[in-house]
Design a binder for these strands. Structure first.
Lengths: 312, 312
DNA sequence: CTTGTTTAATGATACGTATAACTAGTGATA
DNA sequence: TATCACTAGTTATACGTATCATTAAACAAG
């Protein structure tokens, strides 16, 4: 009791001092597994993400950590590699009682699968691409309005005089919502949306997709909007390698605002990743308070920002 | 026994099947904390790093994960923020029995402090900047020859005709070894080493340091060698912001080869971060085999590479 | 039918903690 | 002096697993 920093009115000051003295003499360290077992709390939050090498996520993790750490929680990072298999492994991993709650970006799992976790009393905060309706389970979401952000970026490109704008996207994750916003804005302007889809959110995929865009001989796109910055960076490198100038020959826009975006002058949508992480952590910690699990699911929005730089 | 995938000759096939069937019907998931307690193994490796937002580390983590995961181990990431306090927190965290071994970059802790961990049976693999002598404890190191790499880079800059080369570095971590290599090469060429030191390995620090370099009115440096790429990127941005052209007005070189280095054409020293992580993981897993703790410490070298790009 | 031997299944224990239950001690009050 | 109330300190129990010890059953050999 003394060691757990509990204010201990029941223990006399003298005894308290004696305990602390002895503990430090013996270099006593409480055994974490035993505490977890006995208390059924791990004092750890899991962070499930598709790819730690995408700089967006380290930023998010930092936000999470800053809040979690000051509340005495650890953060465990689980990398799913963006694959369904990885997300399932994460789920069963979590079902083994390794964390008290999860903040996660799930590309494949939907509410039904997450329900298993929620029912087991493990609250979930999803990093989502749109508002999610309230449900009875302790599943919250934190999001920026991806469709609106994409639409805004698309409108900006149109304002700049582009008529043929192709969107490069991945198959999963936030791509659908971003594609939706893009398509709406295009149609609203009487333009035809066009897509090039690659499998992953990587530079490689971006370069490959850009290659496909550039191979269109007649009426090639004058602007490319990429579903995230990793794709955009790949696209930009590929465009330059093909001897094209950005933005004169082809304009490029991205999504996320990773550090490299600023360096390359990439026009992009800024997501406040640190704040997203911090907000997710706060939400999760709220769930871990007594009675927190009973409240209905929340869906919290943060604001995006269109960063106009030199690439478009 | 059946569930632990142990080949179970002692259990008849029929019983074995019955157990597996029941387990899946009940969605049985073994309780991880309980296993940890009973078996005194966590099946987790800790990765202690100074800053997850420095892209060098996610690459390393990936290497670690790829090996650890396929051996059934999880990877726990602990961010020290490069501060002594963070490293101490990591140590006591580890002493609570949260991981079976550690791969870490320690800027402040030295062998004496790490000894506590090693004695407790927690093997350590350090990511180091130079060869370390063998010791009796289960403390290994994985490194590239930082001094030689820095010397090679410095010689390259000298070959390119630079006489006044300033090194920008941080106070801790690999900076001393890198400074040493730089200084030796400078002196060997009859040149005078000059240093600008900032506190951290960040873009901000790099920009600040570059500001200081540029403020030298008489005989300003024609080349700057930064102790890592984060610093170099900050320096490059600051130089350009000051209206200077890289490399014509001032050449810049870095260290690490983070993804942004390629994008910016930054001449740098490539560290094989994925391989470093994978090698560290292998070494650690070897320690976790029966009898692995008794072997003397190893010091394993990987090769660097000088990447000559456009910035210098 | 007994004895010994093997095989299958069941029971008991400890890991280190958190918490509840209990015991002993100390005054205070009637 | 006996009763009560309260404090301080001690003991017991359970968390879920892995492992060791024990019992029960089955079978073969004499």
């Amino acid at each position: 009791m003394v060691l757990n920093k509990t204010e201990t009115p029941s223990v006399p000051a003298a005894t308290r001092a004696r305990i602390l003295k002895l503990a430090s003499e013996l270099d006593y360290q409480p055994n974490h597994p035993a505490r977890m077992l006995r208390s059924a709390r791990t004092m750890a939050l899991a962070c499930v993400i598709p790819d730690i090498t995408n700089p967006f996520y380290p930023g998010l993790v930092r936000g999470l950590q800053s809040v979690a750490t000051s509340a005495g929680y650890d953060v465990l990072i689980f990398d799913t590699d963006g694959r369904a298999e990885g997300e399932e492994r994460a789920t069963s991993w979590l079902l083994q009682g390794r964390a008290d709650g999860v903040v996660g970006t799930f590309f494949h799992l939907r509410v039904p699968q997450l329900t298993t976790l929620a029912r087991k009393g493990i609250p979930i905060v999803r990093l989502e691409s749109q508002h999610k309706p309230k449900g009875p389970l302790p599943i919250d979401s934190v999001y920026i309005d991806n469709a609106e952000a994409s639409a805004a970026m698309t409108r900006y490109l149109i304002e700049r005089g582009h008529q043929r704008i192709t969107m490069i996207l991945a198959e999963v994750g936030p791509s659908p919502r971003r594609a939706f916003g893009y398509a709406s804005a295009m149609r609203a302007a009487g333009l035809v949306p066009e897509f090039v889809t690659d499998s992953r959110y990587s530079e490689q995929s971006g370069a490959r997709a850009m290659g496909e865009v550039l191979s269109q001989t007649r009426g090639r796109a004058t602007a490319v909007f990429c579903a995230n910055d990793m794709l955009a960076v790949g696209a930009m490198v590929a465009a330059r390698a093909a001897g094209l100038s950005v933005p004169d020959d082809i304009a490029i826009a991205g999504f996320d605002d990773i550090p490299a975006a600023k360096l390359l002058g990439l026009t992009t949508v800024r997501q406040p990743e640190f704040e997203l992480g911090a907000l997710a952590a706060h939400t999760l910690l709220g769930r871990l308070q007594p009675g927190g699990l009973e409240q209905p699911g929340k869906s919290l929005e943060l604001k995006f920002e269109i960063l106009k730089r030199s690439s478009a």
